[in-house]
Design a binder for these strands. Structure first.
Lengths: 147, 147
DNA sequence: CGGCTTTCTTGAACGAGTCAAGTTTTCCGG
DNA sequence: CCGGAAAACTTGACTCGTTCAAGAAAGCCG
C-alpha cells in the first residue's frame, strides 16, 4: 500500500486529501489494531499540529468510507486497522488485550449463516477469539505448575 | 430458573446471598441483554435503596463467577444475560442496537478452531452478527423503493 | 449471638468520546 | 492562476458510562 494509493483511495471515496488524513492512514498501516491515543501520538510525529478531534473525525470518516475498519473488543477502547477486504477475524488476549489477526478455518464466509436470525437482515459476522497470548500464557503456566 | 435456584447458585459460587444480588438476577432474567442503567431501574422497583455502585459490583461479581454473561457489541455499553451454558451468539441491529440470541449453524463449538492462532491459547469464540432488526429493515426498505 | 468479612452506600473522580463555534484548507470553475 | 463554497481542522468545553475510595451495614461461621 503506497502513499500515493492512499491519496487515490481518499479521492475514490469522495474525501478530500489532507495531511492529517494521510498521516492517519500511514499510522494505521504502521500499527494495526492501535487505539486512538496511540494513533494520535504516531500522527503527531509527522504532523505535530494535528488535533485530538481531527484524529477522531478522520477515523470516523475513514471508517464510514470503509477505508479503515474499527474493531472494539469488549472492555477495550476502539482500535483500527486498514480495510483489507479479506475475511479475517481477531484473537484478543484476556490478560494484556493484545489483538492479532486470524483467518477463520471454516472458509471465506464463516458462520455468516446463522440458523434462526429472528428476521434480522444480517450483513456481517464478526468472530472474536478470546484467550491468552503466548507471553501471558507463559507467565501464567509456571506459576500454576510450581506453587 | 426459580428464585430459590438463584440463592443456590450464589452459594455454590461462594457468594453471599443478598437482596441486591437476588434483585439483579431477577432483573437480568426478566430483561435479557439489558444495560446497567436499565437493570438498575428494574432493581429499584423491588429494592428502591439499591445504589448505582451496588449494581456495578453485583454484575461484576456475577460475571466473574460465570452466573451472568457480559456482552458488549462495539459502540454499545455493557449488556448482561443469564449464563445459560449453551453456545449461543448474538445478532445486533446496526440501527437501533437491539440484541437477539442466535444459535450458530455450524454446530456446538462453531469456529472455535481458527487456522493460525499465532500461539494464542484460545478458550472462547464469540460470534456477533451485524445487520438490521425487522423493524429497522422495514423502516428503511420503503424509503429506498419510493424516492 | 459475636465477630470477622464481604458487601453496600455515598460521593468524588476518571477518561474515551462527542458537541459546538469559529478558522483554515481543499479544490472546482472561471 | 485566482476566488469562493464546502469540507475539514483547531480549540475548548462537556457528557456519560464506569471506576475509585472510605466508611457503614449485612451475611454467615462457629
Amino acid at each position: 500500500m503506497e502513499d500515493s494509493e492512499f491519496e487515490h483511495l481518499l479521492r475514490s471515496a469522495g474525501l478530500r486529501v489532507t495531511r492529517p488524513r494521510l498521516a492517519v492512514l500511514r499510522a494505521v498501516r504502521r500499527q494495526p489494531h492501535a487505539d486512538t491515543a496511540t494513533l494520535l501520538a504516531a500522527v503527531r510525529v509527522e504532523e505535530p499540529s494535528v488535533s485530538h478531534q481531527a484524529v477522531y473525525d478522520v477515523l470516523g470518516a475513514l471508517t464510514d468510507s470503509d477505508l479503515v475498519r474499527r474493531i472494539q473488543p469488549a472492555g477495550s477502547v476502539a482500535r483500527y486497522e486498514l480495510r483489507v477486504g479479506d475475511n479475517h477475524h481477531h484473537v484478543v488476549c484476556r490478560s494484556c488485550g493484545t489483538v492479532a489477526d486470524v483467518d477463520c478455518a471454516v472458509g471465506v464466509r464463516p458462520c455468516l449463516d446463522a440458523s434462526d436470525t429472528h428476521g434480522f437482515v444480517i450483513d456481517e459476522a464478526e468472530v472474536t477469539y478470546w484467550g491468552l497470548c503466548p507471553t501471558c500464557a507463559a507467565d501464567r503456566a509456571p506459576a500454576a505448575a510450581a506453587p
